[in-house]
């Protein structure tokens, strides 16, 4: 893969930085990644190993190079327990409902991000191409809805949800998350549309395209990177949202962060292995999405600096 640097227009091979810098970058990455690594390792530990000090960081099949005290015996029990476990000693295993919670998280986050992307992209195109009188004021007002901390607006939102009967419904939480995602979706997509050359659109008009086709055939394909970046950004925010989900989802619509918090407690204290297993599973969808969009993302974050 080749990268083009803006200043001198020269192409650089990816590995040009050499071993020294690569090593430095690796160390920094590991430090950042370490908490995640601990979570993933803990997910495979028995309860006693999870609590051991010093931490047992290595699975026992590495015991031929690692001292005895630092290894643990890996187990998949925690992952099984996420979905099905007994709630008191000796009782039969019960369905925990986590399959439902994972579905809820994916469905609610996915739906609201796509909805915000759809509405926000159209709105952004409008703000970019057909500015209103006081365009900037409208944009600012839209952004102010995100300036208040969630805790400030939670009471009015709860009251509204109770009155309208949206409390505990998919519609309610999806609408709320869509409203939350819209401001930055509009702002981000507007900046991507602003970067496009108006001549290109005029060329399409002369070539016989209607305004609708100018948008779908000419503008939208040019901002795919922006769509990807905005989608991932929104997905991460929505995926991790806790407070509104705690107060506004019901038993049927509960998301993973809320359900996870409710596993804390019980007869043997905090089950760290179980929590870590939930978190590990919870990471997978976001990692997958980011992985599949990474090429678009790379162009998205460098948009405007690499072009021209």
């Amino acid at each position: 893969m080749l990268f083009r640097s803006n200043a001198k227009n020269q192409t650089r091979e990816v590995d040009q930085a050499g071993w020294g810098r690569t090593f430095g970058a690796t160390v920094v990455s590991l430090i950042y990644f370490f908490p995640v690594l601990i979570i993933i390792i803990t997910a495979f530990k028995e309860h006693t190993d999870a609590l051991a000090v010093p931490a047992k960081l290595f699975p026992d099949f590495l015991s031929f190079i690692v001292p005895e005290g630092l290894t643990f015996k890996p187990t998949f029990d925690n992952f099984v327990h996420v979905f099905s476990r007994s709630y008191s000693a000796g009782a039969a295993a019960q369905d925990t409902g986590f399959d439902r919670f994972f579905f809820n998280s994916i469905f609610i986050a996915g739906f609201s991000v796509l909805l915000a992307l759809f509405i926000g992209t159209l709105a952004a195109f409008g703000f970019s191409r057909y500015p209103l009188k006081g365009n900037d004021t409208y944009l600012f007002v839209i952004l102010t809805t995100r300036m208040l901390p969630a805790i400030v607006v939670i009471i009015p939102v709860m009251l509204m949800f109770r009155v309208t009967g949206l409390s505990g419904t998919y519609t309610g939480i999806i609408l709320l998350y869509t409203a939350f995602n819209l401001p930055f979706t509009i702002w981000m997509m507007k900046s991507f549309f602003d970067e496009l050359s108006p001549d290109v659109e005029d060329a399409a008009r002369i070539d016989g395209s209607s305004e609708r086709r100018v948008f779908f055939k000419i503008c939208l394909p040019q901002v795919l990177a922006g769509l990807a970046a905005t989608a991932v950004f929104g997905l991460i925010l929505t995926w991790n949202e806790f407070l509104f989900a705690l107060l506004l989802t019901g038993v049927e619509t509960r998301t993973v962060p809320v359900a996870m918090s409710q596993t804390i407690g019980g007869d043997i204290g905090v089950r760290w292995g179980l929590l870590a297993a939930i978190e590990t599973l919870f990471l997978i969808p976001v990692i997958l999405v980011t992985f599949f969009l990474q090429n678009q993302l790379l162009r998205g974050v460098t948009f405007g600096t690499v072009k021209r």
């Binding site: 050359s197 290109v200 060329a203 008009r205 002369i206 016989g208 394909p221």
Partner: peptide, 19 residues
């Protein structure tokens, strides 16, 4: 309307469809 005028145009910026 623009369409149907039998006119084609070349822009100073070329305005090629980049995608």
């Amino acid at each position: 309307p623009i369409r149907g005028r039998g006119v084609a145009m070349v822009f100073q910026s070329f305005a090629l469809y980049p995608h």
